[in-house]
Design a protein around this nucleic acid. Sequence first.
DNA 1: AAATCAATGATAATGATTATCAATATTATG
DNA 2: CATAATATTGATAATCATTATCATTGATTT
Lengths: 142, 142
Amino acid sequence: MTVDVKEVQEKLSVNNYKMTSQRKLILKIIMNNEGKHLSAEEIYAKVKEANPGIGLATVYRTLELFSELGVIHQLNFDDNCRRYELDHGEDHHHHLICVKCGEITEFNDYILEEFEEDIEKEHNFIVSDHRIKFYGYCGNCQ
Amino acid sequence: MTVDVKEVQEKLSVNNYKMTSQRKLILKIIMNNEGKHLSAEEIYAKVKEANPGIGLATVYRTLELFSELGVIHQLNFDDNCRRYELDHGEDHHHHLICVKCGEITEFNDYILEEFEEDIEKEHNFIVSDHRIKFYGYCGNCQ
DNA sequence: AAATCAATGATAATGATTATCAATATTATG
DNA sequence: CATAATATTGATAATCATTATCATTGATTT
């Protein structure tokens, strides 16, 4: 389930939004930086290299729009800003956060499927997604 | 592993901090509101009922201090503020977040213990803590 | 071409958090 | 006990990410 420009264009037009040059540029920046978890300001900086006329507000608006459409989703690593990554749907995509150097590693898992069923029974709560953060020490910091 | 005032007093004095009346009041507010995940502003409001002279800055400073000492820890429910709860140590304490009404339910689990071992082997990452957020629909919103 | 509506860019406003600094409380010391 | 040294506090200013505003631009329709 990879994300490509055409697919996003679809999602936009279905919801009566247009794929403008600014939106396409922002999308490409995000796609070209998979795993970097860029913040709005970081995306803004990269975007300006290609198109210096673009406004910060447009970046924020576009990130909000993409989040609504499920193209991306927010992350929070407790560093005072929202970060974003492509939403690949049902991949169980999580993060290892080094509490010393802050390095963030990604990994996938599928072990919580059955656990979600338990939650639904025990707490009468229908799980649609989950996010795990593991805190600890990366290879360099042990 | 419950948290009590005496224990916090210990932690404070070990690190050359004093248990002032303000700190004690803030601690008690947090203890009396277990499961509420109060924000700094919310704690400030409750604190002022008992001691109107207390300053907002003191609340923020105390929350930072308590976090450093491991008395409490931060939570993030993507609602533009940091929330806090008592840190009970190694209890695996997680949250179910309703994406519709925002209700937050707590639960504990121990199933990820063995999974942490896998992570240590595969990613050379020593896990010290983990936090899971399950998103979905609570009983009222299904 | 005129009208309608969406999207943008610049900038002001907001709001949570942090920094500053003088005043106060506490502890150590002579 | 008095005084010096230090920690803590309260008030307030500063910061900074994010959001709102609004006039302008661009695209689309008729």
